[in-house]
Design a protein around this nucleic acid. Structure first.
Lengths: 148, 148
DNA sequence: TCAGATTTAATTTTATACAACCTTTTTGCC
DNA sequence: GGCAAAAAGGTTGTATAAAATTAAATCTGA
């Protein structure tokens, strides 16, 4: 690529990723609205549906989010009756997040979400698999960079 | 995929996209810091470096951002001396954004940014091209959905 | 054992994002 | 011309995000 093209928006790999990520969040919104969830909140719920409970640190590592984002988000989810927060008796620094009955029951309704989304992405299965692999590879490369 | 797996975080196509997008923004930050730009502001600058000037509507269409995001962002960029805002004499509704000398001069320094980023993404050229194509395909599919 | 280092959350500050709504201006259309 | 509809940008309210700082609890090595 010529130097003078390297600053064109259309040459950027990062821009469609950034834009598609935001459009995806917007596409999720109407599906999650009936459960009163936002997309990041839905991700927290997925971790909890799978693992039962998790510390704030665990959630942060799973979702690549820090406490500055999670703490206010979890506070809202708690006030909406989806989760409970308790201190770990073994280590009082750690806050354990778990599901309420309501939060747990939402799992059944949530199965409709990935089903509906798969119709919206406009990719066939091979493309979706390829995109999945590439975004994870990119994510891991960027995370490795953070250590140094 | 089995139904019970469909809500696992590791089955989601959207999550690595969402996480990688945020990690990318973080990776850009130190490169842009010396120019006092954030990643979204850098995108605005790229449009202006390429086109010279653009209305708020043009910027919104190019970057998939609405006035609720752009208006305060452009206000900051103006106060930092990077851009100018003038009303279009042809259409008083429209605000034309253009570069100051300082903003224009930053283009030379910015060539270092895509060069540095290409080393960070951990993808070879074929993978980068493939990811570019897939994210644009996804972006366009999601945008088409918005009309309906 | 106990002082310092580390870990874990919470808080604060700054900067997006987006939906919903509002104001001003322009455009159609009769 | 006159007026409804559309277009453009701004405003408000809510929800992330991330960096930097603080505070509390735990761990660790001399």
């Amino acid at each position: 690529m010529k130097r003078e093209d390297s600053l064109k928006l259309s040459s950027q790999l990062c821009f469609p990723l950034y834009a598609a990520s935001r459009e995806l969040t917007k596409a999720y919104a109407p599906l999650l609205k009936e459960m009163g969830l936002t997309y990041p909140q839905y991700l927290v719920m997925m971790v909890l549906w799978e693992d039962g409970s998790a510390s704030v640190k665990d959630l942060g590592e799973s979702l690549c989010l820090d406490s500055g984002t999670l703490t206010p988000m979890l506070k809202k989810m708690e006030s909406h009756g989806l989760i409970l927060k308790t201190r770990d008796p073994e280590d009082q620094r750690s806050v354990i997040v778990s599901l309420t009955k309501k939060g747990s029951d939402f799992k059944e309704r949530a199965y409709a979400v990935p089903a509906a989304m798969s119709c919206m992405i406009g990719l066939d299965e091979a493309e979706a698999r390829s995109l999945y692999a590439l975004t994870y590879k990119l994510l891991h490369a960027l995370q490795a960079r953070e250590q140094s």
